[in-house]
Write a protein that binds this DNA or RNA. Structure first.
Lengths: 168, 168
DNA sequence: ATAAAGCCTATTAACTTACTCGACTTTAAT
DNA sequence: ATTAAAGTCGAGTAAGTTAATAGGCTTTAT
């Protein structure tokens, strides 16, 4: 799996939108400026993210982009898969499983590839924008806990961003 | 991290040489034939592997290629790093650590990248050609045990590579 | 000598990457 | 209704990478 420059831009833009979540639509220009990204290129990236229904746009004057879901509900895996393709180091999970079944001489190699992809998927499918959007946060990936999936939003009220309290 | 077609060819060729280990030098043509690889392209790949001292060549008539170390001493990480570069999904481990230190707004993202690279490294640095060379072997990555590092080559004789024996 | 090998440099077509350009459409504000 | 501020979208492009191929050179067993 490879994250391209474009993929990095996408992740940065999404982190920015996560930081400004519930501040309404943010202009491309402002995202580009704050994250130091090439504006026209970013435009294409946001379009892709919009078509994938991860962000939404507001057109016309006072328009811009915003996340369609809470930052805690958007996983890095989604963004990376969209922009850079499958997480496997070669092919994708499905084709690897095929090869494991059909290409007997090399099945052990493909199994290793699948293990690597599973390891990456475990990390990227359990890390959300919320987890990484504010650097000051609870250390991340250092000490102890970490790794949860959803935290079924116990609050009955809106609060719109039931962040995600990990701290067993 | 991405394994290219070239990288896959390299791994296949190395698996083939592992299967024929201690049968002396094998001609490029025979490797290409047995593994169904483009011969001239394979030649380039083997040259790189030779310059990296993973294989050695015997020139002239009756020449060919052979592994320079036992298959159990050659890890997939070496081959992949040589042909396809660092295991990290973006940049390499060193530059990621730099970014984690210096790019505060994005450090959590780079930390995730580093986690992914560490996970890949754990797998690829502990899987040797011996582990995958013979498909019929002890299942690999399925059931239970797996993951060992060296198997200290019980023979008291040379063993040629006194690297560093860990085996608590 | 000669044939069988690997060595090595160059070339290439196709593709990918990281962009930019500019015309078009939608919408808020006047 | 006009205008200016936005996103939309199709094209284009320079540079780089990938997956090869070609062919002459060198080494070595016989």
């Amino acid at each position: 799996m490879k994250v391209s420059q474009k993929g990095l831009y996408a992740l940065q833009a999404m982190m920015m939108l996560a930081r400004h979540y519930s501040q309404g639509a943010i202009r491309i220009r402002d995202i580009a400026y704050e994250e130091n990204l090439p504006e026209k290129f970013l435009e294409l990236i946001l379009l892709e993210l919009k078509n994938a229904r991860i962000v939404e746009s507001v057109r016309g004057a006072k328009g811009g982009y915003q996340l369609r879901r809470a930052p805690s509900e958007i996983y890095l895996s989604e963004i990376i898969r969209l922009i850079d393709g499958p997480l496997a180091p070669f092919g994708d999970a499905a084709s690897l499983r095929e090869l494991i079944d059909r290409d007997l001489p090399h099945r052990a190699l493909y199994q290793v590839f699948l293990e690597v992809r599973d390891a990456a998927a475990r990390i990227l499918e359990s890390t959300s924008l919320h987890d990484i959007a504010n650097a000051s946060e609870t250390s991340i990936g250092k000490g102890k806990s970490r790794r949860k999936k959803k935290e079924p939003q116990v609050l009955p009220m809106v609060v719109h961003g039931g962040k995600g309290s990990q701290n067993a």
